[in-house]
Design a protein around this nucleic acid. Structure first.
Lengths: 132, 132
DNA sequence: CAGGATCCCCTAGGATACTG
DNA sequence: CAGTATCCTAGGGGATCCTG
């Protein structure tokens, strides 16, 4: 089976992988898997270069605070590039870096999968037929 | 580019994708991306059938509470199968379901990527490989 | 428009103890 | 061994107001 291959290969290189408590990958994973990161990342993967207000609209439900916070760590991690244009009114563009694109390449299938299975898994499937 | 393809295709089918606030996929994503789920899932992907105590050891740092909680939602979601053997002392086995394996197939590359880039991104050195 | 700065609530999650 | 049951706190995250 495929996965075991990959993981086993990794464990040969680094016996403790992500499983070790102090492993930096856990921190990175926490960044990336935090509530809003996937949404922002995918929005950028789909939309290319986007502005703050666009991102707010796309990631439906983000508060300004969380969007700011999410973007900041994403930028700090080098996954998203921020470009501020010194005009009035302010104009700031966000886009994926190459590294960020690597990530969304992996993240995207996951979200597609989640989207496809969420209904069945969570039992919220739209009732096919009603009889009352 | 690849990602945009996938996401765009999805948006054609379902205009609001994961981006919509009420989308069930968000809930599933939150389950799957919660702090310990990836670790547990990957441990099972690598280890096959594992017992509670094994999982505790592998996902270094989980508290009993969190392991229990994580496993419960994973089982409820049909991603992990739980088999309790009515012996003394108790013996309970956990393993991925086919659905769970689908998920780890997608999760695994992500964690490998995280592991490989964490050091550079966070500005830390990865834990040295141990020769025991 | 793109955020800081604040206040505050809620719960994810840790520590510890107990049980079938 | 494989969990529950409690208690408790840091901080994730929302709402609101403020500013360059």
């Amino acid at each position: 089976m495929k996965v075991s291959h990959e993981v086993s290969a990794l464990r040969q290189r680094f016996p403790d992988l992500v499983f070790e408590a102090g492993c930096p990958s856990r921190v990175l994973l926490d960044h990336v898997m935090s509530k809003w990161s996937p949404l922002v990342l995918l929005a950028l993967a789909e939309g290319g270069t986007l502005r703050w207000s666009e991102l707010r609209r796309r990631a439906e439900g983000v508060s300004e605070k969380m969007l700011a916070q999410t973007l900041r760590t994403l930028v700090d991690d080098g996954l998203v590039a921020r470009e501020a244009h010194p005009v009035v009114p302010p104009h700031v563009d966000y886009a994926l870096t190459p590294l960020g694109r690597e990530l969304t390449d992996l993240l995207s299938p996951l979200m597609v999968w989640a989207f496809d299975h969420a209904g069945a898994i969570l039992g919220v499937e739209p009732p096919p037929a009603r009889r009352d």
